[in-house]
Design a protein around this nucleic acid. Structure first.
Lengths: 205, 205
DNA sequence: ACTGTCATGTAAAACGTTACATGATTCT
DNA sequence: AGAATCATGTAACGTTTTACATGACAGT
């Protein structure tokens, strides 16, 4: 369901072919709602069937065509309705917290590996998010920069402000995850320092 | 996949019937990995088929029976293997960040509603998490308190330490979400204060 | 001619949600 | 006798993942 609104949001910027959508998805909305290409093409079609998009067939090369999708009025209405509707919040479902809560079953080495993995992932995320956040504020963001309708005036200010807001939230969340996992490493150290009981336990059946 | 390990983790504490599992799930592992009862019963069966659990049929009342599941050695091995295996991290998929990034399409009122909803949800989560965290440290947690094998010694210390660690992470994350959403409310206020352009825009087709 | 980009998916499986469904037992 | 708890699911549907699959066009 949310994928649909992610695509709608992206296409409000400018009309695009499925390929364009799939590509720019990865460097924009994809940061908040991941989806592989194989999900995007079928969803665009289904959105066209539902009248949210209008697909115009454009010749591409001598023999082939491509489809350029544009958001319809119904599409814009649907996006607004989605934003106006109360959301039932998503319940937690985090493999990392699950692991963390039962790390006493892992060997100290495995526990450290999982925590370091977590740190590495979020550190990389953080780099991407910070870079993207900067392209938003300096106006060089590839997707936002192609929105002729919203480059000037309050619309542009608002659109950018909310994107920066969203990225800031994700950046903070990533920083928090890293800080938390570091404390986890310290905890593992403190539990292995004093005695060999942990290691010994993990060798039992 | 993770549901399986959530159940395994829970059942390492003590053998339980499906009903017991479903009930204590909600107040323990369910905080990190949500699952409805209707998913739990079938999964327990499938885990028994795979040899991770052993189900013992116990008479219950004069005519009926119940099944008590106990983790097998293979189950404990599977749990350890899961904790030792590298995890490919889950990509972001957050309706809230998606909405936040495109809030310029909502009316200011809708934007405020979504943000307040977010705050309310995480505030409630926070209360539950803090309460549960406290029952862990004072030893009154209903599920942990029933683990005869691990009530004393380093096992108990380790098991509790990691659970507290996991809850602390979730508590911080919830606090961060609330602080972030509050900044969002301030942003909405600042963007509506100066001119009427936002409101006007949302009335267009 | 070759390489990289553009273009577009399908098929099967796994996972998760929602709604529905039933009956025994124990406690008051 | 009635209420709350214990016990256990199924069926249908929707979403997401994974793996596979193909070919035209544009630039060097």
């Amino acid at each position: 369901m949310a994928l649909r609104y992610a695509l709608l949001s992206l296409l409000t910027g400018r009309p695009m072919t499925g390929y364009d959508v799939a590509k720019s998805f990865a460097t924009s909305v994809g940061h908040v709602w991941h989806a592989p290409d194989s999900q995007i093409y079928p969803e665009l079609r289904s959105m066209e069937r539902d009248g949210l998009l209008h697909g115009r067939v454009v010749p591409w090369g001598p023999t082939t065509t491509k489809t350029e999708y544009r958001v319809t009025d119904a599409g814009r209405t649907a996006l607004r309705a989605w934003l106006a509707a109360p959301k039932q919040p998503q319940r937690t479902r985090s493999p990392m917290y699950l692991m963390a809560a039962y790390l006493e079953w892992a060997t100290p080495e495995a526990a450290r590996d999982r925590l370091e993995e977590h740190i590495a992932f979020h550190a990389e995320q953080l780099a991407v998010l910070r870079r993207t956040r900067d392209t938003l504020t300096d106006g060089s963001h590839p997707t936002l920069a192609h929105r002729p309708d919203t480059l000037e005036g309050p619309e542009a200010v608002h659109a950018t402000a909310f994107k920066v807001f969203a990225y800031d939230g994700m950046i903070e969340a990533a920083e928090q995850q890293i800080a938390w996992a570091r404390r986890g490493l310290a905890l593992v150290d403190s539990l292995t320092a004093d005695d060999g009981s942990w290691k010994a336990r993990t060798l039992l059946p």
